[in-house]
Each structure stands twice: as C-alpha cells, then as structure tokens.
C-alpha cells in the first residue's frame, strides 16, 4: 500500500500523512460508535432501553454528546498546575494513538511493519501511564492523586504478564513483526496460535498452554486499559472518578477517546497474536475470502468481537479490590505465564 501511494505521488512525507489519515478516521468513528455500543449493550444486559432519543434508536447520540463537549468552556481549577494539567490529556491520547502504527489491518495495510512491531507497541503504550500520573498530580485533588497512584501500581504490574503472555507467540513465529506473525498463522482457523499454531504435533502439545496464554494476555490488557473488573483507577464509588475528576469538555473527551482507542488497539493485538489477525478462518477452502480488501473486514471484526467481550465483562463483573488486583497479577497470572513460557520455550527449542 505504502509503496503504491509513494509511486503515485513520488513523495514520501505525503504518503506518511495519507496512510495516517484513514487510521485516525477509523479510530474516531470507532470511538464514537463504541461509546454508543457500550451504552446500548449495557442497557440490553440490564434490561433497559438505552439512548433512544437522538436519531433512529439513538444512533446519533454520541455525535451530539461530542458536539456538546466541544462547546464547553475550558475550565481548570485555580490550584491546578495549568501547563501540566493541559499537557496530560495530550500525552494520554498520543500514546494511545501511536500504538496504531503497528496494528495490521490487512496484508496490504499496516502503518509501519517494523521488525520490532510488538516491542514497539508495548513500549509506546507504557507512555500513557505518564499522562495519567501527571493528570492526577496536576489536578491538585486528593482523589485524583489516589487515582494516579493506583494507575501506576496497576499498569506497571500488569505490563509483566502482558509481555510474558505475548512472548510464546514470538518464540513460535520467530519474529516480532506483526505481519510475519500473521503470515505464520495462514491456512484456516486451526492454524491460529490460540490452537497451538501450524503443525499437527504442536497443536496437540501446545493447545492448552497457548489457550491459557491467550486468556491471560486478554485479562492483563484489560487491566492495562483500566477496564472493569480492573478499573480501580477511576473507581467511582471509592475515588469519584480518579484522575478524570477535574477535567471537563474536550479535555475529558480526550481521555475518553484514548480509552476507547486503546480498547481497540489491545483487542487488535490479542487478535493478531492469537486469532490470526486479518487471516480468514476458512483458510484456503474459500480463497476469495483471503482477498486483501476482505482482510480489512476480518481484522476489524475480530477486533470488534474482542471489544464486545470487554464491554460484556465490564457490565457483568464487579470491580476488584486493590489488594485482590495485585494478588491476581503477582500470585496467579505471572507464575502461570512463566510456566507457559517455559513449556512453550522447551517445545520451540526441541
């Protein structure tokens, strides 16, 4: 894709801009409709109607909400540190969006197919925590500060099982490049890494371990994006709304936007690593479905499926306590991923 546009325009910088625009547009539209989707799904699960006033069945609700947020005045508390207060939402949003550079949407479309794609994703998403921290500190509000302290302890701890659960795939694929990892999973649903990857013996031996790795990766990315059951960062009943308390208008919208962007980003990472990314589940049986343009559909629908699971869990499970959160991470997830890592590593070496 990049090469094609470059040859068309004969210009590199313009190509970078043109490749970025559809991704930004996608994230914007996704965030708008994921908010609506979350409200509709939660309403459905709680036997309510949900937003139904603006547009048919409420389809325009979040657009109207966005317009309302844009019109609002920029309020910042008198005792807040103005520069850092305004910088924080920008850092959070930028970090969430930068991760999209390595998310493969199709065999012909990826922002940058780096050799270190997966490592880049983990490095860049760890920047978001700085934004949350300085947001909590600069608001000069004790609840914000508690939210910031919680966000650090949570996100830094959960980075470990996230990385450990992703490493087995890297060992089997022999690469950190997202496109290579997906190409390795060609040939139908049974060759996806969640079922142990290609090869009959590897499926038999590795299936349980890869499945646990996939589940743990999903759980810990849920914690990385501060979603329930891990949303102690913004636990409404304990610390009001955590780091978001003093933010209003577009600054609040940027935090919100970043959260939804990150939800899709981590869903895409899980689907790339374990669910074959843009590969069609039918493999070579129906070659038409492996068309590069239909691959966009596979990549996005797998992402949306996992986003649906995230929303589903949010409206089903209660929030964990802070100490339970740490127990889950350090006493369960990390030892299990280490065992997985050891067994899969042993298999990869032999």
């Amino acid at each position: 894709m990049d090469n094609f546009i470059t040859s068309l325009l004969g210009e590199n910088i313009l190509t970078f801009v043109l490749v970025t625009v559809p991704v930004i547009a996608f994230v914007a539209v996704f965030a708008l409709y994921a908010v609506l989707g979350e409200r509709k799904i939660s309403a459905w699960m709680q036997n309510r109607v949900g937003p139904n006033r603006v547009g048919k069945g409420g389809v325009l609700q979040t657009i109207i909400d966005g317009l309302k947020l844009i019109q609002k005045e920029f309020v910042s508390p008198i005792r807040a540190d103005k520069y850092i207060f305004n910088l924080a939402p920008i850092i959070v949003f930028t970090a969430a969006f930068m991760g999209f550079a390595v998310i493969p949407f199709s065999s012909i479309f990826i922002g940058a197919d780096l050799n270190l794609g997966l490592f880049y994703f983990f490095a860049i998403t760890s920047l978001g925590v700085i934004g949350l921290m300085i947001a909590g500190w600069s608001s000069n509000n004790k609840y914000s500060l508690y939210g910031a302290v919680r966000s650090v302890s949570q996100i830094v701890s959960y980075e470990i099982p996230t990385a450990l659960a992703a490493i087995p795939v890297v060992m089997l694929a022999g690469s950190l490049s997202m496109q290579t990892i997906i190409h390795e999973q060609a040939g139908g649903i049974l060759n996806w890494y969640i079922f142990g990857g290609p090869g009959a013996i590897s499926k038999l031996i590795l299936f349980p371990f890869m499945l646990t790795s996939a589940v743990i990766l999903f759980i810990s990315t849920l914690a990385e994006t501060n979603r329930t059951p891990f949303d102690i960062v913004e636990a409404d009943s304990e610390i009001v709304a955590g780091v978001h308390i003093e933010y209003s208008g577009m600054k609040f919208a940027m935090f919100f936007f970043a959260e939804y962007a990150q939800m899709f980003a981590v869903a895409a990472i899980v689907s790339t690593l374990f669910l074959g990314g843009w590969q069609s589940p039918f493999g070579d049986l129906i070659p038409f479905l492996n068309n590069p343009w239909i691959q966009f559909g596979w990549a996005i629908s797998k992402g949306l499926l996992l986003v649906f699971v995230q929303i589903w869990l949010r409206w089903t499970l209660p929030r964990l306590r802070v100490d339970q959160l740490m127990t889950v991470c350090w006493k369960f997830l990390i030892p299990i991923t280490l065992i997985d890592l050891f067994i899969i590593g042993l298999y990869a070496v032999l």
Partner: peptide
C-alpha cells in the same frame, strides 16, 4: 538503532521516569 530507541522508551520513560514521578507524587 531501532532496538536501542525502543529500549530507551521502555526502560527510561516507562520505568525510571515513572518511578521518579511516583516518588515526587508521594
């Protein structure tokens, strides 16, 4: 040096700087 650049981000920004700000906050 792409690996070095990403390690810089991961270790210095994602690790050491986070600890530093954590210390300041507390």
């Amino acid at each position: 040096a792409d690996f070095l650049a990403l390690t810089q981000v991961m270790v210095y920004i994602g690790g050491i700087l986070v600890l530093l700000i954590f210390g300041i906050m507390l």
